[in-house]
């Protein structure tokens, strides 16, 4: 009953029912994945101070991402972007009652160990920070805290799940306020899932080779038709309509980074994006909540951006 690694599922506990009754198993695969399931249909917002975290919580965020600079500012200021100051993360954890996520650099497993020690609820191994390892991602199975990772296509998503990510998000192109890359990545993931569904079993190994994805996970998707973990959109979502667009394309929820606190009226924009994410199929409601939210963040054209400035190409 295991796939590519030894990850417990709840059914194994129940199989041992009578004998193992009342033993507590912490940080199982099901428990790690379970928190992401609780976040579905919600909006996870980037915050850089306790005050912003409270604004996000008041607006109805289902979780916050604690970081030192939002992606738009990381883009502007350049330099090496690292894990946030532990004091900042602690302060944000103490200021809200909703889950708190924080970012570690790709491959920087010690930053991840520090974040776990600080008690964050989820770690984002994120391309928004400067990668610490340009070849290897973190072995996420080794942690008690669950991880979310970015992807551009299904192969990348399943490589991260293979390493232990309990939640996936599109990379999009963070800090641009331009949703085009998030759309591209979500469509790539969902389209490849539809394709796998339609393949005969004997073609799956070749498909796994083509995607660079673990074969067992390809087999699983062939049978279930869905990713084995929750799948959010991220990277460029700046308006209520952007959020509803991603939901209608088929993601489970949205991350909004710079789009809230770089807009003219963050509290209003945050609330409107929360509303649009719940009522994403109801255009009359999306129209209603989009009124009077002020200017969204100023966007960047991704197509004319030099390759070196694209964050999505970090990681593999």
């Amino acid at each position: 009953m295991t796939t590519i690694t030894d990850r417990p599922v709840v059914s194994e506990a129940s199989a041992n029912g009578a004998a193992g009754a009342h033993d507590r198993s912490e940080s199982t695969w099901a428990v790690k994945r379970g928190l992401a399931q609780m976040l579905k249909g919600g909006v996870i917002m980037d915050v850089v101070t306790s005050d912003q975290a409270k604004i996000a919580e008041d607006a109805g965020a289902c979780a916050v991402m604690a970081l030192e600079r939002v992606p738009a500012d990381i883009r502007k200021s350049g330099g090496v972007a690292r894990m946030s100051d532990p004091d900042l993360i602690r302060a944000i954890c103490e200021s809200v009652t909703i889950p708190v996520m924080a970012k570690a650099r790709i491959g920087h497993f010690v930053e991840a160990q520090v974040l776990e020690a600080l008690g964050v609820d989820y770690i984002d191994e994120s391309e928004v920070l400067t990668p610490a390892d340009d070849e290897f991602h973190i072995d996420k199975h080794g942690f008690k805290v669950p991880f979310v990772c970015g992807c551009r296509d299904l192969g990348e998503a399943l490589r991260r799940v293979g390493e232990g990510a309990a939640m996936i998000r599109t990379k999009g192109e963070a800090g641009t306020g331009n949703v085009v890359e998030a759309v591209r990545h979500a469509r790539a993931v969902l389209g490849e899932i539809r394709k796998i569904r339609s393949l005969p079993v004997e073609e799956l190994m070749t498909e796994a080779k083509r995607l660079g994805a673990p074969y067992e996970l390809i087999r699983e998707i062939h049978s279930t038709g869905v990713l084995p973990v929750v799948n959010f959109a991220a990277g460029g979502i700046a308006t209520p309509s952007d959020a509803a667009l991603m939901m209608q394309i088929g993601v489970d929820g949205v991350f909004v980074g710079s789009g809230i606190f770089k807009s003219e009226n963050p509290a209003k924009m945050a609330r409107a994006i929360v509303m649009a994410t719940t009522h994403f199929r109801d255009a009359a409601i999306v129209a209603e909540v989009s009124r009077g939210v002020g200017e969204p963040m100023r966007g960047l054209e991704v197509a004319s951006m030099p390759a070196g400035e694209r964050l999505a190409s970090r990681g593999w």
Binding site: A13, G20, R24, V145
Partner: peptide, 12 residues
């Protein structure tokens, strides 16, 4: 507690 204290068990 926080997420790292989340768990599963069997109950009656």
């Amino acid at each position: 507690g926080r997420q790292v204290q989340s768990f599963e068990t069997m109950i009656m």
